[in-house]
Design a binder for these strands. Structure first.
Length: 617
DNA sequence: GTGAAGTTGTGGTT
DNA sequence: AACCACAACTTCAC
């Protein structure tokens, strides 16, 4: 637009359901001669129908849309979030034409899905003479810039990310909250019916749709007022989560965290408890995911809180450092974003150059061109049953089952509980592809993120980022570290609630008399463990060792031409990695290991001891 | 090339 | 609570 002309602006909300700390919103409001301002959400049926998402995330999203709408109405009674029912590439051009739009402004979103969508919008806007302004704001640093600074490579360690951002200057300050919003102009659309775009023919959420959806009947909603759709209009019943969405709720949680200075200063993720009934972490991730709070509010808020606390004397309490502290957590979030942005096919194995090839069961299957994911062939019944039992929380391991039931019910579990269940289904015991686990988290987690979720699944499965595959989370030992009484198990697996503490994580080891007294017979009222934890752990480690030795990645020719699986299975045949060891054999190995230990020790042990003596001497 | 470090393992000892 | 041994991965700094 030439200078002096009036600006008629659509602010397109996507990842940023807030008015605070929004550099993109600020940029929109700073446009000169702002005449009309339309805050818009494009309610895309392709996403609503085509992406499997549980009730809890839908309800959180709708509440968050409603909350930001009310925030805007509070600033200007004529304002609201205008929810336009249709795919953005269809409804945005209708709005541009109907409302005389000159500018489209939004927060930049560099993940693979958004990149494709936004490229189409950029090109359409160019055709129609609408100026697009996209502004970074979702992360501490723009992931696209981080990838450039990292030699055009995805970041694979936190150190890489930290070194890359040194070249990018300081983290942006919290963007100011607008105190005024211009009015929207006329909101009438020239085309108001849904027939103008292709109706999606696949409904991946049919299994949870309990009624008829009406929310796509017209572009401006049933009342013609662009209101936020309700769960009912989507054809859904109520959600089950206790976590409420929205920028108000998010800011309450943020303020509660920042108000406890010693907690902010000494935050240490590894020392929080995954077993806790009340979250031992901040529970801010869903609000960051939907942009209900700005990441800089948390970053700078934490910095200021700690600075003030130190000024006030800080009473000798311990301050934690990166990466365990809150800043480290946010840096990891950014690191995954820069990894996703820089790595094609980040969300799958095939074609993903940073992902180790491991011969997991139930991997994605592809068509002949290797492009489209096709349904898995029948026949892998044991793996399918293990996956189903894991998903449904009936593995026979109370800790795993409690976590999975909590995940489905609340849409949230503690970060370390995610580690535990992810390790179990992949490299720990089940040897099932992380792609399958990732899908379940995608469906059920409210805070699901297109970069953090695949990234963490690769991390936990030792496919990328992390490689110490012999460190396996115990199904009894791990939860016992923070809660010997099994409170989370008693809540989410109530059939086990009367077992004594001693057996709560392994009820199948309880004598029959104890099971009877607890009114729960293992194998009847609660499942017997679906596998032997230690036998499967040993098999997994042996197979990971073979896979690491073969050292193929998602973009290796052997993976692309389909021969990798055979190569690795042959290797297992030679190493004996695939075989199940009997109990006797395991006992013998344990005795052997003990002999080594009580004898003159392994070479490494000897070297270390000698070194220590050298240092001390 | 070498050695240390790497967000969050287990099981044992001190 | 802090240390080691287990058996041994990748990255990074020197």
């Amino acid at each position: 637009m030439t200078k002096g002309n009036a600006a008629r602006v659509i602010y397109w909300f996507r990842t940023d359901l807030r008015v605070t700390d929004s550099p993109a919103l600020q940029a929109a409001l700073n446009l000169p001669n702002l005449q009309a301002f339309y805050p818009v959400w494009c309610w895309d049926p392709n996403y609503v129908y085509g992406h499997k998402v549980g009730l809890n995330r839908w309800s959180f999203l709708l509440e968050s849309m409603q909350a930001v709408s009310e925030e805007m109405t509070a600033i200007n009674p004529k304002q609201r979030l205008h929810v336009v029912r249709g795919p953005p590439e269809i409804v945005l051009p209708i709005m541009w034409e109907s409302w005389g739009i000159t500018h489209l402004v939004f927060e930049r979103d560099a993940n693979a899905y958004a990149k494709v969508r936004d490229a189409r919008i950029f090109s359409l806007a160019r055709e129609k003479g609408v100026e697009v302004v996209d502004v970074h704001g979702r992360h501490l640093y723009d992931p696209v810039e981080v990838v450039k600074a990292n030699g055009n490579k995805p970041t694979t360690t936190l150190h890489q990310w930290q070194n890359a951002v040194k070249k990018l200057g300081a983290i942006g300050k919290v963007a100011p909250t607008p105190t005024a919003l211009p009015d929207p102009g006329d909101v009438k659309l020239k085309i108001g019916k849904r027939e103008n775009y292709k109706w999606p023919h696949v409904d991946k959420n049919a299994d949870i749709r309990t009624g008829k959806d009406t929310c796509f009947d017209s572009l401006s909603g049933p009342e013609g007022d662009y209101a936020v759709p309700t769960m009912e209009e989507m054809g859904y019943g109520p959600s089950t989560t206790t976590i409420r969405g929205g920028t108000v709720e998010g800011h309450k949680r943020l303020a509660a965290f920042l108000g406890d200075a010693p907690a902010v200063a000494s935050f240490s993720k590894p020392n929080t408890a995954p077993t806790s009934l009340e979250p031992s972490t901040t529970l801010l991730s869903p609000y960051l995911k939907f942009g209900c709070i700005g990441v800089r509010e948390l970053w700078w808020g934490s910095k200021e809180t700690i600075a003030q606390w130190e000024k006030d004397g800080s009473k000798g309490a311990k301050k934690t450092k990166e990466p365990e502290n809150m800043f480290g957590q946010l840096e990891f979030r950014d690191m995954y974003a820069a990894a996703e942005t820089g790595q094609p096919h980040f969300e799958r194995i095939r074609g993903n150059g940073m992902c180790k090839f491991i011969d997991w069961g139930l991997q994605n299957q592809y068509d002949k061109e290797g492009k489209e994911i096709v349904p898995r062939p029948k026949g892998d019944d044991e793996d399918e049953e293990r996956l189903a039992a894991w998903r449904e929380g009936r593995t026979g391991f109370p800790w795993i089952d409690a976590c999975m039931r909590q995940l489905k019910h609340e849409g949230w579990i503690h970060h370390l509980a995610r580690h535990s269940v992810a390790c179990f289904i992949t490299r720990g015991q089940c040897y099932i592809s992380w792609e399958r686990g990732m899908e379940v988290f995608d469906e059920w987690l409210i805070d699901w993120d297109p970069a953090s979720n695949p990234g963490n699944w690769m991390w936990l499965s030792c496919s990328a980022f992390f490689s110490q595959y012999f460190r396996v989370y115990g199904l009894v030992s791990w939860p016992s570290k923070t809660d010997k009484s099994g409170a989370l198990v008693r809540k989410y697996c109530p059939e086990l609630k009367d077992f004594p503490d001693k057996y709560i994580y392994a009820p199948h080891t309880a004598p029959e008399s104890v099971q009877k007294k607890a009114n729960c017979i293992i194998g009847k009222d609660y499942p017997f463990p679906m596998l032997d934890e230690h036998v499967e752990k040993d098999r997994c480690i042996a197979r990971l060792k073979d896979a690491y030795a073969l050292n193929l990645h998602g973009d290796s020719p052997e993976v692309l031409d389909g021969t990798a699986m055979g190569l690795l299975r042959d290797r297992h045949g030679e190493s004996g990695a695939g075989e199940r060891k009997g109990k006797e054999e395991r006992e013998e190995e344990k005795r052997e290991s003990k002999r080594r230990k009580t004898g003159d020790g392994s070479l490494d042990g000897f070297v270390k001891k000698a070194k220590k003596e050298r240092v001390e001497g």
